[in-house]
């Protein structure tokens, strides 16, 4: 086994164990922290296959933004503080879905790459990634950005408080709250 393969095995074991711990731990915050380790290990796999840019994108987006938002919303809502636990009763179903996904992925990967020869790696510089992205894939790139923009606008629409739909729902606690905040603003 080459150094690369040994590193991959170590990373895969750490990532796999934390992925299992993530779904089995009873504490939601612990689960989110195991998710951090798993996602970081995915980034490490990218590093092993010399996709440096992708690896740090993984860290920035998943570890730095998505998990932080996840933790943030957990703590803002119902994360138990300290050693308390929170659990649900969906184990059987979850195991079934997990196994199904695993089987499907294993079959797909085996089907696509099973017989082929090992691919020789070459370090992809950021320049090459940029050139490929903006020469060969510029249309898909722009389509994705429009999609993201739509999601952004959707999020703003959902999050807006002073929509006319709010008044149709009849009197609620919002009205005095708003007056109060206006008063403090003055």
């Amino acid at each position: 086994m080459s150094v690369q393969e040994i590193t991959f095995v170590i990373i895969a074991v750490i990532g796999g164990v934390s992925a299992v711990r993530m779904v089995t731990s009873r504490n939601v915050v612990h689960a989110a922290l195991y998710l951090v380790v798993t996602l970081a290990m995915v980034g490490a796999v990218y590093l092993v296959v010399a996709a440096e840019f992708l690896a740090w994108v993984q860290v920035l987006i998943y570890v730095g933004a998505i998990v932080v938002l996840l933790l943030f919303s957990l703590m803002l809502t119902k994360a138990p503080i300290g050693r308390d636990t929170l659990d649900n009763q969906q184990r059987g179903l979850a195991a079934l879905v997990g196994m199904g996904v695993l089987a499907g992925l294993a079959f797909l990967i085996q089907d696509s790459f099973g017989g082929s020869k090992p691919i020789t790696l070459h370090q992809a510089t950021t320049e090459q990634v940029g050139v490929t992205l903006f020469r060969g894939f510029v249309w898909p790139f722009e389509v994705v950005s429009v999609l993201l923009l739509a999601a952004l606008v959707g999020a703003v629409v959902i999050a807006r408080k002073d929509d006319p739909a709010g008044s149709r729902r009849g009197p609620d606690r919002r009205a005095p709250l708003r007056r109060g905040s206006e008063a403090t603003r003055r």
């Binding site: 860290v59 933004a65 932080v68 703590m75 300290g82």
Partner: peptide, 18 residues
């Protein structure tokens, strides 16, 4: 990318302190 990680540490500290 690396600086984004330290946020997790602060969240961990704040939550674990109970």
């Amino acid at each position: 990318a690396i600086t984004a990680i330290s946020v997790i540490g602060i969240l961990m500290a704040g939550w674990a302190s109970a």
